[in-house]
């Protein structure tokens, strides 16, 4: 399994917030068309880490990054890579559904429009429909695209956010606890969706829910106190963890 192509990787990544070192020497490879789950107790640096992968952490005042992040062997913090272009290639879904306070259609059409990916009219209509279908939302909202996105249910809003991210055809999708604010049925839908999307892109997902990690991911990384304790195939990590800390965490003895 590990001979698959590496889509993204970090090498010795360190993040500082002022004097505080939030991540220490994190090196993880992410393989193409696989789902990698990042697990660990609150405050362990998972979210900080995933936000470094599309340079969202740049926006946090007083943060400083050392180390390297590669996308297809290209260093994303190098000057040749533009953060705006990077975020088109590496999409993101957030913990709380955050649709724009606009119509369903506008939410999906926004990113393709600013990147000039589709012309107004049928081309854009087509792209909106495709993206909503990919996110499994077309059946539910296809006939009310002009409705405000905020009138959808929480689960639908989150899938709309996924459709919005998919509309620019990213190569990697980052998901920061995408189901933590949803009920079990909506969570189930998101998980099914992750399974389907895997064939199109590389997915990195932060989750608090270990069952979820074991259900959806191919590989899992366990974070603790800003460090990566263990990275392995999900099945191996959950059945035969090589570190004691990992075992204690996944069996629920702490965290």
């Amino acid at each position: 399994m590990n001979d698959a192509q590496v889509k993204m990787a970090t090498r010795e990544l360190n993040v500082y917030y002022g004097e505080h070192r939030a991540l220490q020497d994190v090196s993880i490879p992410f393989y193409a068309h696989q789902v990698t789950a990042l697990i660990g107790p609150s405050g362990c640096g998972k979210s900080t880490y995933i936000r470094c992968l599309n340079r969202m952490n740049d926006l946090v005042p007083n943060s400083r990054i050392e180390g390297e992040v590669y996308l297809d062997r290209e260093e994303i913090y190098s000057t040749s890579m533009d953060a705006v272009e990077l975020r088109r290639r590496v999409g993101m879904v957030f913990q709380k559904p955050n649709p724009f306070p606009k119509s369903v259609y506008e939410n999906v059409a926004y990113a393709p429009r600013i990147h000039g990916l589709a012309r107004k009219g049928t081309e854009m209509d087509q792209l909106v429909e495709t993206s909503l279908r990919k996110a499994g939302l077309w059946e539910e909202v296809g006939d009310r695209l002009s409705l405000p996105a905020t009138s959808l249910s929480g689960g639908q809003q989150q899938r709309l956010c996924i459709a919005r991210a998919l509309a620019v055809e990213p190569e990697v999708l980052l998901m920061d606890e995408p189901a933590s604010a949803l009920d079990p049925i909506a969570t189930q839908k998101i998980e099914d969706l992750i399974y389907e999307l895997k064939s199109r892109l590389t997915i990195i997902i932060v989750t608090h829910n270990m069952q979820q990690a074991s259900r959806v991911s191919d590989r899992t990384a366990f974070f603790y106190m800003g460090e990566v304790v263990e990275v392995d195939d999900t099945q191996t990590l959950f059945t035969r963890p090589s570190k004691k800390q990992t075992e204690e965490y996944i069996t629920g003895r702490f965290g």
Binding site: M56, E85, R87, F94, N98, Y110, A165, A167
Partner: peptide, 27 residues
């Protein structure tokens, strides 16, 4: 204007001015 809206716009690759003029300012 909640930060989640800024994050959403940045997340799909909007530039800072686009985030302000398309989302934050109208809201």
């Amino acid at each position: 204007v909640p930060d989640s809206i800024r994050e959403a716009a940045f997340g799909v690759g909007a530039s800072r001015w686009q985030v302000v003029s398309h989302h934050v300012l109208p809201m």
